[in-house]
Design a protein around this nucleic acid. Sequence first.
DNA 1: AAGAGCAGTGTAAGCGCTTACATTCAATTC
DNA 2: GAATTGAATGTAAGCGCTTACACTGCTCTT
Lengths: 340, 340
Amino acid sequence: MSDLRTVPTLDDVARAAGVSTATVSRCLNSPERVVEQTRKRVMSAVEALGYTPNFGARVMAAKRTFTIGAIIPTMENAIFARGLQAFQEELHARGYTLLVASSAYEPKIEEDQIRALVARGADGLLLIGQDRDPEIYDYLKARSIPVLSAWVYFPNSGRPTVGFDNRQSMRALAQQVIDFGHRQIALISGITKGNDRAAARLAGLRDALSANGLDPIAMPVIETPYEIENGAVALQTLMQADTRPTVVMCGNDVLAVGALRGARDLGLSVPEDVSITGFDDIELARIVAPQITTVHVPHREMGRKAAIALIDMVEKRGTGDTIELKSKVQLRDSLRDLTC
Amino acid sequence: MSDLRTVPTLDDVARAAGVSTATVSRCLNSPERVVEQTRKRVMSAVEALGYTPNFGARVMAAKRTFTIGAIIPTMENAIFARGLQAFQEELHARGYTLLVASSAYEPKIEEDQIRALVARGADGLLLIGQDRDPEIYDYLKARSIPVLSAWVYFPNSGRPTVGFDNRQSMRALAQQVIDFGHRQIALISGITKGNDRAAARLAGLRDALSANGLDPIAMPVIETPYEIENGAVALQTLMQADTRPTVVMCGNDVLAVGALRGARDLGLSVPEDVSITGFDDIELARIVAPQITTVHVPHREMGRKAAIALIDMVEKRGTGDTIELKSKVQLRDSLRDLTC
DNA sequence: AAGAGCAGTGTAAGCGCTTACATTCAATTC
DNA sequence: GAATTGAATGTAAGCGCTTACACTGCTCTT
């Protein structure tokens, strides 16, 4: 291959094909508006020159970037990986590119990232959860950039969401735990401030306690960032209390796996000495021994539907539908049935 | 907040501050060239109007996108997550944005993704490994887009790499295995075609065998995509052979974790009945019981250094240095010392 | 057979920014 | 004090593309 001195432009193609730049542009963007014969000529010129449209110029002229931004709290563990993968596959299939950033669960960083993505011309944004400074929503609205919140389901928030009901899900899991005879329940939660999923899960657990005549206030709760190590430490703290819990429920599977290791390090067996539950049903939950009882979330489906919904908002200028997905309690070995 | 009718432009800011657009542009891009007083005035106008530069226009005028593209084989497991996270943090700190795509280990898809990233104006590209169609390198060269290969170290390839020597690393691990008295060694490898890391690891293992008077040809090898399930299946196949291996080495930790589960399902204990080793030292390796003996790779350091090196290449401060990072055998419980 | 209608194509005006070059003016030099 | 210098700022030419609008030469109407 020869070393091209410069990258060819629309103009070069037009000249080579003996047409105007407008025709070349049309060939590329709405081929049906150009007659077959011309189109062929143009396309072979494109081919011959190895022409690729200049992204910046196209963005500027068309005022569309075909870019969707997504900001997730973390890339370091698999919580969002599968959903995001599906999201990106669906976007790709529809001609969009995904721009990912992560916020490390920091609202400040998230805000920066939102601005960065907007500055880069993202046509739409996928965010996780809904709990953020209203000013950000104003900012996005002023620029008419559609936003979709995933991983949550809030039908009455006035903003579209695609996800599942974290509160109900946790409540359902807790009900199961209670039905299994557990009364001494403790929770290792993620940080609830600025994290509506974590907050909802905590609330759901309390709902279940109240509904079963147990005191939600008395329940020991440790809030800690979603990291395996933190789960281990938290479990050890909980097990040193005067009245040991019979079950330690965790805000997600990452904490649960940590708790499992913490128990192991303490010489406790799970679920004989203490039961552990998780949330999310990421691969991790099935890899460890015992496998972790958790709430299964349809990650891939969520990612796919989020992509479809968001593109819809971008293209149809629709306001965006809220979509509810169903989660499901996934019983495994880490939860002991005390009633047997 | 009021609903802005239109997004403010450089011109609006210039008018509001009573200066020319050039001055505003300079305030934003090289503030030291504008006198303090003016700069302050401009900045408060920027603030007041909520101005954000238009990405497309900036790209077009500056012929730079401040975007770095990265194509990784997969986002679905954690192999690349940590390194990529560090990569993106470093980029962000230096004013660049990361565009990530994944290829599903398919050369065809990777090629598409490369073209897509280039079309979007990526200033530089991070790829994993070096084994790909030379035509792609020509294509990138013609557009003078710097490329850096990570996760490998090939000092004499003529292209910059940032990573570790997969072959030597595997050889070192294998030497340890042999020193522990293992003679019946089997390998569950990733697919080596188009994957120089997998190929190098296989080669390194063979090196060690030869160096110790063992027959590299006789070693059972199963090649399979990097998925937990595949590791489980492969282990079971290997254990059904006439002469059972005393150790099953795996191309990475994902396969090793799968192998571990496969052993468990077969009722075998690790490492009593069979030893297992991994590669990469991702979090997974420490979560499972027993913890997996593996090769530790400095993921975060690799990501950070890759970012620095690539930006260097983009900004023409260098042609791209090859950087070697040191891996390290990480002994854990899944490998039994037969000599005791 | 003249006009209407329309498909196919061309012309040219931006899109919002960066930056080379031009201009201004105060400080410095001789 | 005139000339020189250089820092600070302004002017305006693109960057490569899309698209509104204009134009051309058909095929239909009536």
